[in-house]
Amino acid sequence: MNEILIAVLIVSGIGLVCGIILAVVSVFTEVKVDETVEKLRACLPGANCGACGYTGCDGYAKALKEGAKTNLCVPGADAVAKEIADILGVEAEDVVEQVAIVKCNGNCNATSKKYDYQGVTSCAAVKTLYGGSGACAYGCLGQGDCVNVCPHNAIRIENGVALINPDECVGCSLCAKTCPNKIIEMIPDIHRVAVRCSNKQKGADTRKVCTNGCIGCKKCELNCPTKAIKVTNNLASVDYNLCIICGKCAEVCPVKCVDWADFSGKHRQNEEK
């Protein structure tokens, strides 16, 4: 009994001495952090997503002090931009709210499997095996790497395809960076058109692997009044700078891969309220 007591006392004694020394030294060696940076850091969301282009929220706060643009925090949106501008005493700039869209609709009814994958549930892993288990080499791998990385639980895998709930998406672009097939795109969230396909094969070949894929028929291109949607490499793509959100492309698409939907994300809905 005595031995145990001594051991406990000695070890906790050493710990106590270390703690006291650290506490005393920390008082003497206190370094003042810049107050503005601390305030800026406090008003940032703290998700450390890196959408601003800096290394997390701490990096952005430091860069702001040194004159970085105030409207780079996409997840924080206008509210955070305004707070930052108030602290720095500059005029608030509008943030372009973004939302992520998945450019694939190859669900289990439309496409088939090349082989039965039974490995680690990771898109990156399955992609190393013959470019994925799906018949289409361009589409969603369906293992949910984007689901795991999303800080706001906005993504789920439904019927084999990633589905992003715009109501929860704050536009941090972590999913777009993670997707090994790069089929997630960030678009300004006022838009309503999304091409739900990434297959660059010729129409007939696309058709063979997926009935929801873009066949490159150019009907959307011909019907677009501003030439915002174009078929390049057998795949329709939208130039969101030119799109006037008329919806004519979606009306004519024979395979319904040009999707017309409401992508207004969390921020825009808050603003409209």
């Binding site: 050493i14 710990g15 270390c18 020394i21 650290l22 030294v25 060696t29 206190e30 370094v31």
Partner: peptide
């Protein structure tokens, strides 16, 4: 325990001086 405390101490002193 001691090494962890020591490294922490060194870090604080370096940060200051």
């Amino acid at each position: 325990l001691v090494i962890a405390a020591l490294v922490q101490l060194v870090e604080m002193i370096l940060k200051k001086y």
